[in-house]
Design a protein around this nucleic acid. Structure first.
Lengths: 214, 214
DNA sequence: TCGTGTGAAGTAGTTCACAGCA
DNA sequence: TGCTGTGAACTACTTCACACGA
């Protein structure tokens, strides 16, 4: 019955998330209105693309003053965020995991890491950055009881697939994967790979683009 | 004189880097030949795309046995890696920086993090994972003297732009940016943003795709 | 006049499908 | 037969350009 939104591209979603962050900064600076060109400059995009992206929100700007910052942010919240808030789990509390916990602290109240897991018993049950760390054998129960649908995998590659399987079995439908392996998951589970090695090699390659020997 | 390769897409480069990692695993397992379909399955891609990507290498597979693993790896090395090896710098040795140092240890001998910088004097001059940590005021000199062209920014967002400016001034041409800000750099500097907040919001959004209330 | 919203055009990226080779 | 290499078709994404509204 409810209007099924037709699929919106991953890239549009990523840019909307970026725009929102930029808008939050503008709002904190007291800016009340913004035109597509400004947002485009801040995001390193074109004005046309910003307008195209914002179309999916169904939030109309004014042709005189552009978009109202507060309204846009509100619209994005409705579009991007889960209505009742969404909890995320983190698996693997090594250096990367700790960095992630710190990174997400207080940043998105609507999408907070509320449970962490680690196989190292010495880490278990000690809260890190106000987030309790559970031993691995509690994963299924904690994830299910808190209705966690989103998880971050920050474990060594050898165990990443096993962790993914357990998360999916416990009800997780979206995974942000930092482990350098290709996870096999059912079709209805979304995986985003953040592969540092690949990214660094990409940077190294393109850093040489215009290289000319003297 | 040398044939100028026409621009190859970022995504092809990223996939080649991924294929290489998969090939290294296969080689370690004693596999000597691979067909496009196998590689595609491992990478979660289609066979046609693998073949298309491999075309840029100019390495011909055999129609009987597919591609020779060792030959492909060799070809990729020639294509992706800097001939004489390339040093990378890391700026910001917090949890994330430490995780990165550990992650890249021994992984790519041709592209190693050989210098790290941090503004915290207590971290300076202590080697972490065999990589010396310098105070920030040595950045320009160390980067220049080692001919470092690739850098990773893992500092808080407030100082990321300043760090980028200093890196670029010191000769860096490619930046892997973990700070959640859009860096302004000259056109000939390549920036890859690895934005964890954006990625997590993307995952959260797509995790809800097929969500149907009971 | 200036900025949005958006069809239409253009560009980039992927997949198809098949010739050719071992 | 089975697999590569690749033009051609297709799909996805971006930009153009302009009607419309404040």
């Amino acid at each position: 019955m409810a209007g099924k939104t037709r699929p919106i591209s991953e890239r549009t979603i990523a840019r909307l998330s970026l725009y929102r962050r930029l808008l939050n900064v503008l709002q904190a600076e007291g800016v009340t209105h913004v035109v597509s060109r400004q947002l485009a400059d801040l995001a390193g995009r074109t004005a046309a693309q910003v307008r195209r992206d914002l179309m999916v929100l169904g939030y109309a700007g004014s042709s005189a003053r552009g978009y109202e910052v507060a309204g846009l942010i509100q619209s994005m919240r409705q579009f991007l965020d889960h209505p009742g808030g969404q909890n995320a789990a983190l698996v693997g509390v090594g250096n990367l995991g700790k960095a992630l916990l710190r990174h997400f602290i207080g940043r998105r109240p609507n999408l907070a890491i509320t449970a962490a897991f680690d196989s190292d018993p010495s880490k278990a049950n000690r809260p890190i950055n106000a987030c309790r760390v559970w031993p691995m054998d509690r994963l299924a129960r904690v994830v299910r009881s808190r209705d966690i649908r989103v998880a971050i995998i920050a474990v060594p590659p050898e165990v990443a697939q096993e962790v993914a399987d357990r998360l999916v079995a416990a009800g997780v439908r979206g995974i942000l994967n930092f482990a350098p392996v290709c996870l096999r998951v059912p079709d209805d589970v979304y995986v985003e790979d953040l592969d540092m090695t690949v990214s660094l090699e990409k940077v190294a390659y393109f850093a040489r683009r215009d290289e000319a020997p003297s």
